[in-house]
Nucleic acid binder design. Structure first.
Length: 577
RNA sequence: GCGCCGGUAGCUCAGCUGGAUAGAGCAUCAGGCUUCGAACCUGAGGGUCGGGGGUUCGAAUCCCUCCCGGCGUGCCA
């Protein structure tokens, strides 16, 4: 609807400019739904943008534009100049009503577009190293990344969901050492420092506790899951691993088991990856050596203080950074550069990294280094998100990764279920903090929950269908009703909202902000539930067969859009609740 | 110190490339179930859009500055 209208306005504008002898391009005007219902269905600001250029009063320009626009090929009922020079347009009811059968006909395809044109996009997200269960922050990223991927898919991109994990670094060694420490402790061969001792970084650790050597790594992982893994190792292998290094079998077993848990968690919230990319493969394929060599050939690395540095200042960044430590080991930056080059080599037209706020500092370095290697760095994009805080009884719950006092995805999901979890996590714009209200989440009274509100709106469309079936009334096909019977203002409002869906989806995709979908669904449900509730004024099912059919058509249109929106968020669209 | 992100109703937050009288949910208060699902609906109160300056027909939105909060600023990942 809006697109058609814009088309007519474009034509009128170029006519007007030509008549005025102005050959420059038409201004980038807006055509938007005004807040005030009295301002019509759409409001256009083109005349005000032209005022200075044409050296004429905006209202006069608006009048002329309106004259040239006419009825816009039959779409318009009325147009007027208002305020400082707005052009307010009201569409004929038929223009809106006609949307209903077209939505019913399109069904699940309504709102889809080919904006992506089959371009290949990779969305990398979660990418948590397997050192412990997924935290609430990972959970947010998981939902955000997944919903962005769903939007891309919906808009005609060829999407790959990718999980990158680092199994070569110090983190994983510390993990292995932590498991070994617990293992020895369980066997009575070593002591683990008390929790209080571990927390107090100011205190010197004893070398022995009760005559047993202390082997727990100072920054080791302290969660119960570490002890669980150690206990299983004791059960299965007894004392056979006492002389194994922490970095060997302990690390491998821990990694395998924790990764299995992570995947189980992701599966429980409906998230699946197409590719798991392993950092170690970059070492094995010689990609790190190649990257260093190529950077060196470009004069972008140098040696100093026993380390190898990336000359990122030459790329316009504020400082240089180490890529290979004096120990000979790469920092995380080098594999990241190699990895991102591989992404582009693999043929992705667009690469979207979803990362937490604590992780973005190095992004410009990766991007510019890849650019310097001859790849289009504009194809690499970052979606940053802030952290999740958990509130309980009006207080923030303190979280620490090292002490394993963070709230896990598993805990949240078991409290609120997948659908509510997903809705809460996607409801906020990514760059803002997200406060997860645990009291509300744990509250048995989930009636006030927006996720249920939207699902309920969807379920009600089936409630009516069941009612119709009981009354032996069939649901109409797209050409089985006269949309002209939908004349109530509430019905027209609903149709207008349905008409916004495609543009909303496209915009959310373009700016990588899925939360707009959640807000749209709340708005639509906020029109639909009252419409159904007001059964004393009007009913969908009545003696008037034609009217019933038209309203059932509206039921179907609303259902399709609610369903598509819920699908975009990965939330179930139940037929009854 | 510097960089990034936030500051909008009591609370949690929307607000599209600058648009007309700033919105939603929760909370509070007052109402509504013999009728398509009350997991709902109707109504009310509640705001100096952190402060100050600037840009222009027009600013929550853009620019400058200050204040507050989060994160970062490692040869940690």
């Amino acid at each position: 609807m809006k697109d058609q209208l814009a088309h007519h306005i474009d034509a009128a504008l170029s006519e007007l400019l030509a008549a005025a002898g102005d050959e420059a391009a038409a201004p980038d005007y807006t055509l938007e739904v005004p807040r005030q219902a009295g301002h019509g269905d759409f409001s256009c600001n083109a005349a005000m943008l032209l005022a200075r250029r044409l050296r004429r009063a905006p209202r006069a320009i608006a009048e002329q534009l309106l004259e040239r626009l006419g009825d816009a090929g039959g779409l318009l009922e009325h147009g007027e100049v208002a305020g400082p020079g707005f052009i307010n347009l009201r569409c004929r009811p038929e223009s809106w009503q006609g949307l209903v059968p077209s939505i019913v006909r399109a069904g699940p395809a309504y709102g889809r577009c080919d904006f992506g044109q089959g371009r290949r996009v990779q969305v990398e997200f979660v990418s948590a190293n397997p050192t412990g269960p997924l935290s609430s922050g990972h959970g947010r990223q998981a939902i955000l990344g997944d919903c962005i991927a769903r939007l891309f898919d919906y808009c005609g991109f060829d999407v790959t969901r990718e999980y990158y994990f680092n199994d070569g670094g110090r983190q994983m060694r510390v993990l292995g050492e932590s498991v070994k420490a617990r293992y020895l402790e369980v066997l009575g061969k070593a002591a683990t420092p008390s929790e209080a001792l571990l927390k107090d970084s100011a205190v010197e650790w004893p070398e022995q506790i009760d005559g047993l050597p202390v082997v727990f790594p100072r920054d080791g992982y302290q969660g119960d899951y570490i002890r669980d893994i150690a206990c299983r190792l004791v059960d299965e292998r007894g004392e056979a691993l006492i002389d194994e290094p922490g970095d060997g079998e302990f690390r491998e077993v821990a990694q395998r088991e924790i990764f299995a848990d992570i995947n189980r968690t992701l599966d429980s919230i409906g998230i699946h990856f197409d590719v798991h990319f392993n950092e170690r493969s970059l070492y094995e394929d010689g990609k790190l050596d190649e990257t260093i060599a190529d950077l060196r050939a470009k004069g972008l690395v140098y040696e100093a203080e026993g380390a190898v540095w990336l000359a990122s200042q030459k790329l316009g960044l504020d400082r240089d950074r180490v890529v290979i430590k004096s120990s000979g080991e790469p920092t995380y930056l080098l594999p990241d550069i190699a990895y991102h080059r591989e992404k582009l080599r693999r043929g992705f037209d667009l690469v979207v990294d979803v990362q937490g706020a604590d992780h973005i500092e190095q992004f410009p370095f990766v991007r510019h280094a890849v650019g310097a290697l001859g790849y289009e760095m504009d194809r690499i994009e970052l979606v940053m998100h802030q952290f999740v805080t958990i509130s309980e009884k009006n207080e923030r719950v303190k979280q620490s990764t090292r002490l394993a006092t963070f709230v896990t995805v598993d805990e949240l999901v078991s409290d609120v279920g997948t659908d509510v979890f997903r809705f809460f996590m996607i409801e906020r714009k990514p760059e803002g903090h997200l406060d997860f209200d645990l009291d509300l989440a744990k509250d048995r009274n989930w009636r006030k929950n927006p996720a249920f509100y939207v699902q309920y709106a969807h379920a009600r469309t089936y409630g009516i269908e069941r009612k119709a079936k009981a009354a032996d009334v069939a649901m109409p096909g797209h050409d089985g009703f006269d949309p002209g019977r939908l004349v109530l203002s509430t019905e027209i409002e609903l149709v207008k909202k349905l008409g916004e869906f495609p543009e909303m989806v496209r915009r959310a995709t373009e700016i990588r902000e899925p939360h707009h979908v959640a807000y749209y669904l709340r708005d639509l449900a906020g029109l639909w539930n009252p419409y159904l509730q007001d059964g004393q004024q009007h009913r969908v099912l009545s003696e008037d067969e034609g009217l019933s059919a038209a309203r059932l058509g509206l039921v179907l249109a609303v259902r399709h859009v609610l369903r598509s929106g819920l699908d975009l968020l990965g939330i179930a669209a139940p037929e009854r609740m």
